[in-house]
Amino acid sequence: MEQPDWNTLSPARMWRDWIAKSEAQWSEAVSQMLKNEHTGEAMNRQLNEMQLLHRQFSELAQASLATANLPSRNDFEALDERMGRLEDGLAQVAAELSRLVQALAVSGGNANADQIVNTSRPTRNRKPASDLIQTRG
């Protein structure tokens, strides 16, 4: 008696073959359907209507959020982009400051890094706008 070929009876292989045949059949069916001019036009109209509905829903959602004084997705995306630019700028300033400290240390300056980089907050020397209005009157 001859032994069966276990490779052809493998469930994984049978599954893979079934998937490949199914994809080919679906591809052929969809290709035939799209070759029909009426089907293509109907699908095009349906996609255009879906895009219009999505755009209208997005505008309605943004208007509702604006009415409630809440940020929209676009607001968060703009804020994220702005924060990214600020972080990049801050990283550049930190890198330049580090290079400056190293250059001063190499040049033999007597000041150490703590003296070069002043971490205290600047004094507030500007009056609030409300105080300025009262003093002008």
Rank of each mutant, 00 (worst) to 15 (best):
A91K: 15
I116Y: 02
L70G: 03
A61I: 10
S98D: 09
A61T: 14
A29M: 02
K127A: 06
Q92A: 11
A24R: 04
I19S: 02
T8N: 06
M83G: 09
E49L: 10
R45Y: 12
F76L: 05
R124Q: 11
L100E: 04
N74E: 12
A78C: 02
A66Q: 04
D75M: 00
R16A: 08
W26M: 15
L86H: 14
T123P: 12
F57G: 13
A68D: 03
Q51V: 05
A63V: 04
A20P: 01
E87M: 13
S31T: 14
R121L: 11
Q102R: 08
P4Q: 04
A78T: 04
G108T: 03
K21Y: 02
A20K: 04
A129M: 11
A12P: 05
G40I: 01
R73F: 05
L79W: 07
A68F: 01
S98K: 08
Q62Y: 05
E23D: 07
Q62I: 03
Q115E: 05
L52R: 11
D17R: 09
L60I: 15
T67F: 06
G84W: 01
R82K: 09
G109I: 10
G109Q: 12
L60D: 15
R136G: 05
A103K: 04
N69G: 12
A12M: 08
S98E: 09
W6F: 15
Q134F: 15
R45V: 13
E96G: 12
L100P: 00
M43K: 01
S64M: 14
A20E: 04
V106G: 06
N69C: 12
L100Y: 08
T8Q: 06
H38E: 09
F76P: 00
D114W: 08
I133E: 04
E87R: 12
D88L: 11
N36D: 07
M50H: 12
S120T: 11
Q32L: 08
A113N: 05
A105P: 00
A129E: 13
R13E: 07
T119G: 07
E37C: 06
S27A: 11
A129F: 12
I19F: 02
D75G: 01
A91I: 10
R124F: 04
D17I: 04
W15N: 15
L52S: 11
N36K: 01
W6H: 12
G40K: 01
Q51K: 06
S31G: 09
Q32D: 08
L53W: 15
V93N: 08
E96N: 15
M14T: 08
R124M: 11
A113P: 01
N118F: 00
